[in-house]
Every structure is written in structure tokens, then in C-alpha cells.
Design a protein around this nucleic acid. Structure first.
Lengths: 215, 215
DNA sequence: CATCATGGTGAACTCTCATTCATACTATGA
DNA sequence: TCATAGTATGAATGAGAGTTCACCATGATG
């Protein structure tokens, strides 16, 4: 009964079409959630946007929360995959941070919707279940940890001042998130490229003019 | 018919009691909103917590959104009133910033609920109407503007490096918000006092060890 | 003491959704 | 061509929650 033409993938057209439909639903949902937030989007709305019937969504996702969670998973991997490699890249710690910071321009351009999905309802009980909340924490960690490791390495090697790497990482990350979100919300009014260079200046050199004495 | 005993205040016990009831409602609502977020709290729940009937809330506030908005107004003034004076205080720009940063410990202690109300659903369409959104923007401005003014003054006087004051203000503010929220969410696990000093170090001295040459 | 007004009450109303399910469709295979 | 399995359908369901309103309690007024 099952002929299994291409035994590599478990599927043929049936399966491919199904995945295609799944993608269309995810894509419509992403657009809407990013635009209006979890609570302000109904399953009916998503179904209409994806050009399916309401019930069809439940052939792919057990619940609205599961749909949202799936989006979170997918987009998080995509975004993390884009910025994290910078921290493993070549160059010294300063270069890595610089590269990391500037990569955010690309994220803002290529993954605007995903960013809004993640940042909009970032911190909050305004979200679905504890599962989503836990995932957010995990994603946060996946940024803060390598970031603070790079900073710690810089401190160890004497390139950086002896500051707390974790705090510095959190500050940098929070700053980037805020500026990125503003840029994504209003791309016309912002020159993110320029802004990120300024962020670099703030974090690298600090505010206070170093009295260039000895020590 | 109206005797107006104390013509100074327009009221006597009647009015005072009414204000008292209003306060009790606001107080219960603040606690719940801060705990669970706007969408996850029902008017019934607020009423029960305040020990009133559901309908009574509507004798004080036209709608759930109005109730929330009122809370936002009140708590924002309170919080801003606590930190903003630091930026007008005595001392040079460095002192002002330092004072400003450290004041956040008090905010976290004294206005934990208000902070969660403001920060939890901070950025997002997870919120009620556009009115609330606009108010948030305004509150943000009320922090960023004076903060960037102080930084600009520091730059002008040559105490600070020549960085973009607005960007620096946004970075500092975002960093403080993030750390504060974490501290409010889990007071036991955090020594906010210590953390804020580290933030100060990061922002004042920067990451990169200044090659202490001439120039 | 009777009347009245003010504020409180909470059941009921309505509307919005997430979710379900009986039905219709369609490609597949015999 | 016919039977079937896997999807898609979308009206119906039921729970939840914001809001209303007819009614009650209490204290002030004359």
C-alpha cells in the first residue's frame, strides 16, 4: 500500500503539500502575532489570513499556544543562528563584540517579524503558559552566556577593564534589544547602522573621559 | 441641602470614604495586574480582591482599560518623582548619573508592583488601547530626555567622551530596566545594590582598557 | 418617623473566542 | 468506476469575561 518512492524523505507530494500548508499557517500566524500580539489575534483571523478553515489549524497544531510556541522555537533558532557565530568568529574579543553588535542590523532587516514576536511581549505574564516563559528564559541564556564568556576572556587577557562580564553582557543585550525594537517599529525614522556604531562607542569607551595618567 | 462644612476640601466623610474605596480598588488592581498582567486579570477578580461587587468598580472607573490607565498615571508619577530629582541635584554630571543609578535600588524596594506594571507589558500590543501605549512613550521620554541632557552637559564640559547622549541615555535606561525587573522578580537571588555599582562601572569606564597614551 | 438620595450589589446579558465534530471533498489504488 | 483514507470545512459549542441594570441598604434630611 505504501510504495515509498523516495525512501530518503518519508514522503512524497502528499507529505510535501502538508508541510507547505503548515508553513503557510506558521507564516500567517507570525505576521499577525508580530503585528498585534498573542492575545489580540484569534484563530479565526489566522485561518482567514492563511486561507484555511478554522478547524484546519487544529490538524496541524493542538492549540493556539502550541502554534505560538512553535513559532517561538523556529524564529529563535533562526535569529540565534545569525548572531551567535560572531562570538565564535576570528579576531580578538573586541572584534567579536563589534561584529556581534553590527550583525544586529541584518537581524532587524531580515527578521523583523520574528524580533517583534520575541521582544514585544518579552517580559511578562501577558504571555501564554509557563512553557513559553521558560523558553524565553532559555533563549536569553543562550545569548547572555556566550556574550559574557567573550567579555570575560577579554578581561582575562587584559584587553578589557575588570568589569563584571555577566552584568556587562546583560547591559549590552538589553541596549541592543531596545534599539532594535525601535528600529523595527519605525524603520524610516532610524538609522540603525549609525545607532549601533554609537552603542559600540558607549560600551567600548564608556562615558567618563579617562584621565590619561599612569596605571 | 449641601451644607459644605469644610469648604476647603469639597467633602466630608462621604467624600473621604469614597476616595478610600477608590484607593482600595486601585490598590487591589495594582497588585493583581503586576502579578498576572492586564489580560489575565478579570474585573470580577479585582472586585473580589477589593471586597466589592463587580458593578461597584464601574461606579469609579468607566472601564477596565480606564482603571489600568489610572494606575499607570499614578504609579508613573510616583516613580519618576523618585528618580528624576537626582538629575537636577547638586554635583557634576558624573555624580548625577551615579546618584540616578543608585536611586533605582529604592524604586525596586518601594515600588516593586508599580515597576512590574510598567515593565512587564512594556513594549507591546499586548496592551489595551493606543492611549496606554502613548502614555508609555511619554513616560519613556520623561526619562530619556533629562538623562540625555545630563550626559550632553558632561560631554560639553569635557568630562565625558564625545558619545551620542541620546543613545547613551537609552542604553543606560534599558540596562537599568532589565536589571531592576530581574531584581523585582526574584529579590532573593539578586543583590541589586552590587549589580548597579557594576552597571556604573560598565557605563563609566567602558569595556576596552584605555591605552593610556597621550591625546 | 417618613422620605430620599447615594452608593453598593450581583445576577444576567452579550460578545468574543478557542476548540470540536459531523460532513464534504479528493486523490489514490484496485 | 467504486471504495477508502486522509484532509479540509465551518457552523456549532461552551467557557470566560466586560459591562449593565433593576434592586437594596444605609444614612442624611425635613
Amino acid at each position: 500500500m505504501e510504495v515509498e518512492i523516495a525512501s530518503a524523505g518519508k514522503s512524497s507530494r502528499k507529505e510535501r503539500e502538508r508541510q507547505q500548508h503548515r508553513q503557510e499557517i506558521l507564516s500567517a500566524a507570525l505576521r499577525l502575532f508580530a503585528e498585534k500580539g498573542f492575545h489580540s489575534v484569534s484563530m479565526q483571523e489566522i485561518a482567514a489570513a492563511a486561507e484555511f478553515a478554522t478547524g484546519t489549524l487544529y490538524n496541524f497544531f493542538p492549540s493556539k499556544e502550541d502554534l505560538f510556541f512553535e513559532l517561538l522555537l523556529v524564529t529563535a533558532e533562526e535569529s540565534l543562528g545569525l548572531v551567535l557565530p560572531a562570538l565564535d568568529g576570528p579576531g580578538d574579543e573586541r572584534d567579536k563584540l563589534s561584529h556581534f553588535i553590527r550583525l544586529h542590523v541584518r537581524i532587524a532587516r531580515e527578521q523583523a517579524a520574528a524580533l517583534r514576536l520575541y521582544l514585544l511581549e518579552s517580559r511578562g505574564r501577558c504571555l501564554p503558559g509557563p512553557r513559553v516563559e521558560a523558553k524565553k528564559k532559555e533563549i536569553d541564556e543562550r545569548i547572555i552566556l556566550p556574550l559574557s564568556n567573550v567579555i570575560a576572556a577579554g578581561v582575562r587577557k587584559g584587553h578589557f577593564n575588570t568589569i563584571d562580564p555577566v552584568i556587562a553582557a546583560k547591559c549590552l543585550s538589553a541596549s541592543l534589544e531596545t534599539l532594535i525594537l525601535a528600529a523595527v517599529d519605525d524603520p524610516q525614522a532610524t538609522d540603525l547602522n549609525a545607532d549601533l556604531k554609537k552603542v559600540e562607542a558607549v560600551f567600548f569607551n564608556g562615558l567618563v573621559k579617562s584621565r590619561r595618567g599612569k596605571a
